[in-house]
Amino acid sequence: MSAVYLVLLLLPLVSAQTFHWGPCPSPAVQPSFDVQKYLGRWYEIARLPNSFERGKCIEANYALRKDGTIRVLNSQLYKDKVSTAEGTAVVPDTREMAKLGVSFSYFTPYSPYWVLTTDYTSLAVVYSCTDVLRLFRVEYAWILSRSRFPLPQTVRYAKELLVREGIDISRMKATDQNCKDN
């Protein structure tokens, strides 16, 4: 019975997220993922709802640090101001290079950041899922591109891949990329 109360207490926290009952799925990730080729700027084309992205012109920049971790610099235009968030990505298991962990605070654990597919030059599909007591899961998914305006068939391919992997994209929203390049 206490688990039910805990779930009821947690629901307001995940209301701006995408959550589903049951544990996380295990989608296939990019085989032979090459972090070096993935570095650089990616524009967010579409995403599942989350509480930390409310603006437009959202992009992520990845750079290798001297200590081997990856600097993650996310930016967005919100209420006519550019806001940024800097985090760190790591590869916890070198046998699964496409399964990274990302944290934006020294006080929070690394969250999953799984690259399901990428060609490194035009498209990346990223998925994250966290189980909450194996009762429900909080999911994130992003379609990223090296261009603000990828071809429609590229976006369609990315969405089809997410669906094939059992990820519900019914709440996925396009990101407004009508912006000036920095």
Rank of each mutant, 00 (worst) to 15 (best):
A174S: 15
G68L: 15
T69I: 10
P27L: 08
V4Y: 13
P12M: 03
V125K: 00
L48K: 03
T121F: 09
L77Y: 06
S75R: 15
M97R: 13
I167N: 00
M1N: 09
M97D: 04
R41W: 04
N182E: 13
V82H: 08
G101V: 07
A85H: 01
V91C: 14
V163F: 02
G68C: 09
Y106G: 15
Y120L: 05
G55N: 08
P150C: 11
L100N: 03
D67Q: 09
N50S: 15
P31T: 09
K66G: 10
R164G: 05
A28R: 15
W42M: 10
V7K: 15
N178V: 02
C57F: 10
N61W: 05
T118C: 10
L73I: 04
E139P: 03
K56L: 11
D67L: 10
V132H: 04
P112C: 06
Y110S: 00
Q36Y: 11
T108D: 11
S145T: 14
S105E: 03
G55M: 10
M172I: 09
R146P: 08
A141V: 00
L161F: 03
P152L: 08
F52H: 11
R95I: 02
I58M: 11
W42Q: 05
V132L: 08
V155E: 14
T69S: 15
V126S: 02
Y120R: 05
N50C: 08
V102D: 01
S111E: 09
P112A: 09
I45M: 07
I45L: 01
L77T: 12
A46V: 01
L13N: 07
K81Q: 12
P109D: 15
I58H: 00
P49L: 05
R47P: 00
A98M: 03
V126K: 05
R156I: 12
L73E: 12
W114D: 12
T175C: 00
Q17I: 00
V14R: 04
L8W: 13
T69K: 14
T117Q: 15
R54P: 07
G101P: 09
T130S: 07
D181P: 00
M1I: 10
E160T: 06
S103H: 08
V29A: 14
Q76G: 10
E53A: 12
E44Q: 13
L144Y: 11
V7Q: 10
E44P: 04
R134Q: 05
D181F: 10
I70K: 08
A89Y: 01
S122N: 11
T18S: 12
A60L: 02
T121Y: 14
T121I: 14
K173M: 13
N74D: 12
Q30P: 03
L162S: 00
L10Y: 01
L9N: 13
V138I: 09
L11R: 07
A124K: 01
Y140A: 09
S145R: 07
K159G: 08
D131T: 03
E160G: 12
R146V: 08
T121D: 12
N178T: 09
Y120C: 01
F107R: 02
T121E: 14
K173H: 12
V163T: 13
C57S: 04
V4L: 10
F136P: 02
S122H: 13
V132Y: 13
F149N: 15
L116H: 01
A98L: 07
C57P: 04
